[in-house]
Design a protein around this nucleic acid. Sequence first.
RNA 1: GGCCUUAUCGUCUAACGGUUAGGACACUUGCUUCUCAAGCAAGUAAUCCGGGUUCGAUUCCCGGUAAGGUCACCA
Length: 484
Amino acid sequence: MGKTNVKKVVTRFAPSPTGFMHVGGVRTALYAWLWARKNNGTFILRIEDTDKEREVEGSIDHIKECLKWLELDWDEGPDKGGPHLPYLQSERLELYKRYAQILINKGLAYPDPYSDEELDGFREQAELHKKPFLYREYRPAEFEKWDEKKPLRFKTPEIKETKWNDLVYGDLSAGPEALDDFILIKSDGYPTYNFAHIVDDIEMGVTHVMRGQEFISSTPKFLAVYEALGVKPPLFATLPPIMAPDGKKKLGKRDGAKDILEYRKEGYLPEAMMNFLALLGWNPGTDQEIFDKDELVKSFELDRVQRSGARLDEKKLDWINKEHLKKLSPEAIQNSILEWLPENMRSGIAGKLEPVLFERISKWGDIRQMAGAGELDFFFKKPELSDGSKLLFKNASAEETVQNLRKAAEWLSGISDFRKEDIKNVLMEIADSLDARGKLLHPVRYALTGLDKSPDPFIVAEILGKEETLDRLNGAAGILKSLE
RNA sequence: GGCCUUAUCGUCUAACGGUUAGGACACUUGCUUCUCAAGCAAGUAAUCCGGGUUCGAUUCCCGGUAAGGUCACCA
């Protein structure tokens, strides 16, 4: 063994429990997890619950549920323990006060004497003069003693330009405007994010901090605190923003960001989601696009993380999901079919649906719209053929389509054992007598399912049974007839 | 408004300063199929603009422009 001077990699995911998680947060978690796993390091889950106002009940469970779904296992954190207990910031208040005291003793922290109104006034002035608001310009000449009732501010030791290195963005810098006397401890006794995360990252030995690009502008403040504390800062890896699918704005809950667990409901595989998220802002530099978990861990590199924002493209997700579905073993599909079905379909007819789903999944990699979006409903109730013209195949006339549907119904009624093989034979026989198979098969499919795209009409007919099948075919013919 | 970041097909992206600017998704077409979202084959489509450095810029520098972020007792 050589020297082990190289510090063990420690990363963390530190969400605040303020509601559901969307792809943005989960991608940050994924990258931190990938980097830890790739380096045989430690991945910590830490809950940053220092804002009592915004806290949403159940969020912590939700966060854990998301990580579990994607199999992002944490080595330290809630439910798991570890050498740095507790992992909820709200239970670490004494620690933050201790660190605050260090700064006070150095003369680098002081209580804020101003009222909210006074501060608002300062801000208005700044805006009026089209200048950034800088609290330090109003810093009191002499510091009072902190009574723990007033907010405690950091006294920026030196106003200067800041330069630092980022693992993703390279050399970064910011002007002196980025430095200000920000709040360390709020008047309610809780620390701010700006302070708490630094203390915890130090205490927990975090070596790599991954977070969104919105933190670039506050990094100079963080660095000033590290310096004041006399601690070497960790390495920063800033992640590019994820943009909303339509607009150009950063993806946020307001503009339709989805709860990540919605995707689970819609039938996406966790591995597909992981694959998709990994590629949203990173690429391996090869043509490979489909990765399983192990391949991702192996291939992931911070220096191939993208710098520009990426738009969320669900079409790509669909494709990746399909590729993963097609790779599933028959056993895995078999075991999962019932689970993927909507709850109201799991009993009764579900047994009959299994082969349909099985084929659909293994051959087409298709489950999402089948089960998730309720497009299996046609098995349970007659589809509404609201637009009768959709029964027509390309340039087929209504008249000939009515004839074809009637002929199909008539011929099918002659089958005694209503099985998909015979159904297919009969229908194909009629179809082949026409110029285009589509002129028969399309209207039959649409009459039975109300969909352009569906499982094959033969097995659908078998499952529906003879009576229902004939009923739907004749019904569709009737609708068309009335359109003429 | 200050500070900061980013900029290659519609989208995600590749390209030691030298490539017919590559791949994937989406789209279109053909074949096959079961009419289909699978498969196979093909096609359309991009270096934001203007200067500079260089024998040569997608690539380096400067300036515009555009987009995003940030200036909270939110994280």
